[in-house]
Write a protein that binds this DNA or RNA. Sequence first.
RNA 1: GGGCAAUUAGCUCAGUUGGUUAGAGCGUUACAUUGACAUUGUAAAGGUCACUGGUUCGAAUCCAGUAUUGCCCACCA
Length: 903
Amino acid sequence: MNMDFEKQYNPADYEDAINKEWEDSGFYNPDNLVLPADAPSHTIVLPPPNVTDKLHVGHAVMIAVEDLLTRYKRMNGFRALWVPGTDHAAIATQNVVEKRLFKETGKTRHDLGREKFLAEVNEFALGTQKTILNQIKKMGASLDWSRLAFTLDEQRGRAVKKMFIDMYRDGVIYRGERVINWCPRCQSTLADDEVEYKEQTAKLYTFKYSKDFPLAISTTRPETKLGDTAVAVNPSDERYKKYIGSTFEVNFVGVPLKIKIIADRGVEMSFGTGALGVTPAHSMVDWQMAQKNELPVVKVIDESAKIHPGFGEYSGLRALDAREKIVERLREAGLLEKEEDISNNLSQCYRCDTSVEPIPSKQWFVDVDKKLERLGGKSLKEISLEAATSGEIKFTPERFQSQYENWMNNLHDWCVSRQIWFGHRIPAYYKLKVKSEKLKITEEEIYVGEAAPEGEGWIQDEDTLDTWFSSGMWTFSTLGWPDTYKNGIKSGDLAKFHPTAVLETGSEILTLWVSRMILMSYYALGEKPFSNVYLHGMILDEKGKKMSKSKGNGIDPLDVIAKYGTDALRLSLLIGNTPGNNSRMSWEKIEAQRNFVNKLWNVSRYILGELKIKNEKLKIDEESLTGVEAWILNRCENLIAEVRKNLDDFAFSAAGEKLIDFIWNDLADWYLEASKFEESANKKAILIYVLRTILKLLHPFAPFVTEVIWHKFNDSMLMVEKYPSLCHPEASDKRAEGSILDSSRGAQNDKKNGFELAKNIITAIRNARAENKVEPARKIKAVIYAGDKVELVIQNEILIKSLKTGISDLKISAKGEKIDGAIYAAVGEIEIYLLGAVDTEKEKVRLEKEIANLEKFAAALNGKLSNADFVGKAPEKVVAIEKGKLAKAETELGKLKEQLQKI
RNA sequence: GGGCAAUUAGCUCAGUUGGUUAGAGCGUUACAUUGACAUUGUAAAGGUCACUGGUUCGAAUCCAGUAUUGCCCACCA
């Protein structure tokens, strides 16, 4: 053991070695922990970071929280498993590589071809993955690397295929049409986040389809109106109510249309004419209206943004040219009522700025409303919703439960196919089947399965699956599914570790990811994927702005680690950060935590280095505790209870703050200072005990520095020490009675108050000295021995009436401090000065006010409790609480009155 | 447009189900200092809890509205 303590803690000197030691120990893998057979499991799956880029500070908070939970549970004897992995992030990754390819070589993915391009993407993904894993390791994450997974690896590939095939055979997955965003130039579909919106001024044309049509409509895209099959109006619009439900056949600039008038709440009465021409094939909203109202879909624009055949003189024209021509015809016919400039958003391709065409296309969907036998006749939507409403899955913070339910309630079928190359290719195969040679009718045959079926001519679907399809299976695909699940029975890792305990992730992907995981776990296993959802907020820069690479305001976790150490980084992310709320990150915050880590280092340096206390099995003799010792042990016991409670409630920040407060204020500033004045039989035992306790308590927050210090006086590894559950373990029998310090709680509280008082006195003295306000004549030197009992009475001044040591007539007073109870003096020798007097008149007024208020309260409660209505309505529990309040109020009242009498 | 939040000290935030005089850290100011730690210590100053109403004996806390800010989703005919 190396007892050398540098004056300052330098994390860089220790972290790598400690990290290696942890990894080499094998304890990250719960299978290596020696635990009783019935030890409970605690599983967390790491939300797999996208392999698009290295980690940022947002990931760091995720790792800090999850590692905290995992270490806490591990130290509590749980089979703690934390599964690492990365996400292929299909679209995002492909975009990054495509952009780079284009920038470097001017080529598109189509120039390279599928195979070559995928090789490029894979190479890139592997590179980033390596960087990411190194970063995670650097943070001291206790992930079980033997279970490392990737959403696109072989095992996950089998899981995805199996899931798709099962769902297809159950009729949950089906193929249907939907309007998607199409870039006519790239000849490719665009995902929602690939569409960019640009404000522009557009011409809004108002016209009637024909003279005999009663309503005028407004549009910026007259050419699409060739495909209109309805006009929608707001159901409460008095102007058009009478038309709802009727159908009109019109001749629109030479093209015959059949228009039905439908009602839709989404139509704004004040926009344009309040009537909306519905073009199902070329507008997302219109498509949805068409689905609801069973309208026919007429395609007008093709994949090259030209007008389809069958539209007379317009066919073959580019959309923009067709628009001009149509407007011209309308003008000629006198149908054009208005032309005005409006500003709207133009949808553009993120890559080439070409305006996007919404066109219908064949896609794969997950039917969320299909009732399933394997789910007891419920649909995926119903069962996922129930998981939240029944409390099976709990959300922290709670408000996200309603957000989840809201979203689930509005859930539509989930489109799972994506027209990109990087991802899990859809296991569907098509073959053209000739139905009738004569009529030249062909039909597409579909086969869904592991591999192409026997026979010629089968072609696999070109598309890949939505990235959430594979990451939605993350809790069980990482635990060996489907191999570990046969005939409804779990085995291996799946049996041991699923459902997982907590899903910890960013609040922004609650709907995107969390809901999909719930859905898929219920489908595949019939059970929830996790019991708790903990959502952290975003980490913003010090001005409250999102950190982004382009703005250059990001804080790189690796920079922080290099400069101030991992512990400082982790603490600054955990403290001052409440669940679900965004939090600002600044170098000052990190610096403050670095200072704390150094403080802890020096506390240890003092105890172990200066006092040369060895790690002998020192026993605390409870009979001979001095006041200050009783106080620190009492504070320590409370600390353990509070920290445990906070951690169990996911209140990490509160737990951390309490730890820091105890270590810095109670231990370092008070107990260590006080202990310099007195020698006692218990001193060493208490110091070493308290040090051991705080190191254990703090380990999940700041694993490195605590382990380093631990190693200075222990051969064991702190990471697998037992998390403290009581102040001194030897006294567990006494604790059962409510206290480990004294047989009666009251006496203990007196001791506590006593030391608080002593603290006040010392403080007052120091302050007086500092301010030099004390007149020498009133300076009294007194000797108070530890354990001496001093009674105080509040008068004009506070007078110490009796003192065992024989010194009487000792006057002390603290400015306005309320002092009562007994003193257990903390120091051997103190100097006491008269500082001032308590303003009794003021105190009296305050007490009277308080008593009056309490009397009112008690009266109100009394009235309430005898009110039959109230009792009848309220559950018994509420009445009991109210009764408790009343009792408390009455006790309070008694106390206050007593105090008032004394004055 | 739909949904969800936030607004408390100069700054960053707590405030656990309504209850004494609203807390902490940073910053500021004053003072201390050689002996665990200047990455230190002791104190002080600093708040109409965004605003307006309501409920209540009592509101930072519950309700309604207003203002400002932010996030997610949908999308602009």
